[in-house]
Amino acid sequence: MMNKKLNGILRKKVASATAALLLASSLSVITASASGNIIPLMTSNTNSLGTAYASSEWAGHEAYQAFDHNDSTYWSTSSGSYGELRFSFSSQKKVTSYTLRTSSQAAGNTPKNWTFQASNDGVNWTVLDTAAYTLSPNFTYTFSILNNSYYSKYRLVITANGGAYSTSVAEVQMFE
């Protein structure tokens, strides 16, 4: 009789603990997905959720590679320190921070000066962030921005790099 009663109590405690774990687990999943990168996995410059675009592309290093969720691939300009890297969402988003992951290329290829901009029509752009940094290769940098508006297009306009012939970016992520 004592064993039956003890087993019943243990089963209730295990069931309560399991329910608590499941609840905690679902909450962390909700939190993680709500605060995660909103750029969908890109395997080409276009898909149903968005479009990647660059002002120029080095062969084999297309714009989508900065949005493919893979740190070992990268977008690169075909030449020069200027480069525009854009992502157009299929719906409007309110981006409040972004990350820029530099490629494994030499430090000279890393962006040095840029603006992070947003638009709904692709003609009129609002500057959300202006940056001037000396970046290291193969590193992720996070930037918080003040943005209270929803936009469908976001772009990184790079105006200077570390002095190399081309500029490259491994990943750009955006967060709401």
Rank of each mutant, 00 (worst) to 15 (best):
A63C: 10
N37L: 04
Y133E: 13
L156T: 09
N109E: 06
S72H: 08
Q65E: 07
F89G: 01
M1L: 05
S48L: 09
G50L: 00
A164C: 08
L85Q: 01
E176P: 15
E84M: 06
Q173F: 10
D129W: 03
T31N: 15
G50A: 05
S166P: 01
N113V: 15
T130A: 15
L22T: 04
F116M: 02
A132C: 08
S97T: 09
Q92Y: 07
G8A: 13
S76W: 01
T126E: 15
R155G: 03
S55C: 07
E176Y: 08
S149N: 12
A164G: 14
P111D: 05
D68M: 07
S97G: 04
A118T: 01
I38Y: 00
F67W: 02
A106T: 11
A52V: 10
A17T: 10
M2K: 10
N138L: 09
T51D: 05
Y133R: 15
A131R: 14
T43Y: 09
S56F: 02
I30W: 14
L146W: 09
S91Y: 09
V95I: 13
E176W: 02
G8N: 06
N113E: 11
L23S: 10
A160I: 11
N138S: 14
Y64A: 04
V172W: 03
I158R: 04
E62V: 12
I9G: 06
A66T: 02
S79Q: 11
R101H: 11
F143V: 07
M2A: 14
L146P: 03
A66W: 00
Y141K: 00
V95P: 00
N147M: 02
D129H: 14
L10D: 10
Y64E: 00
S79A: 15
W58L: 13
V172H: 03
A24H: 05
L85P: 04
I39L: 12
M2G: 11
A131F: 11
G60D: 08
A131S: 15
V29D: 07
T51M: 04
A132Q: 08
A52M: 09
L128T: 01
A52S: 13
S76Y: 05
L156E: 01
Y82M: 09
L10C: 10
R11T: 11
A59F: 12
V172Y: 00
T134S: 11
T73Y: 04
S79W: 06
K93G: 02
M42W: 02
Y150V: 15
K112E: 04
P40Q: 04
S136A: 13
I158H: 01
Q92I: 10
Y82T: 06
S35P: 06
Q105P: 02
E62M: 05
K153C: 08
T18V: 12
R11S: 11
Y154W: 05
S103Q: 04
T18N: 07
L156V: 13
F116A: 07
S81D: 04
G122P: 06
T159E: 05
Q65F: 13
N120W: 09
S48D: 15
K93A: 01
K94E: 14
F67V: 01
S149P: 02
E176F: 08
Y165E: 12
N47P: 05
V172I: 15
Y165L: 12
L135T: 03
Y64T: 00
H61P: 00
N124R: 15
A132S: 09
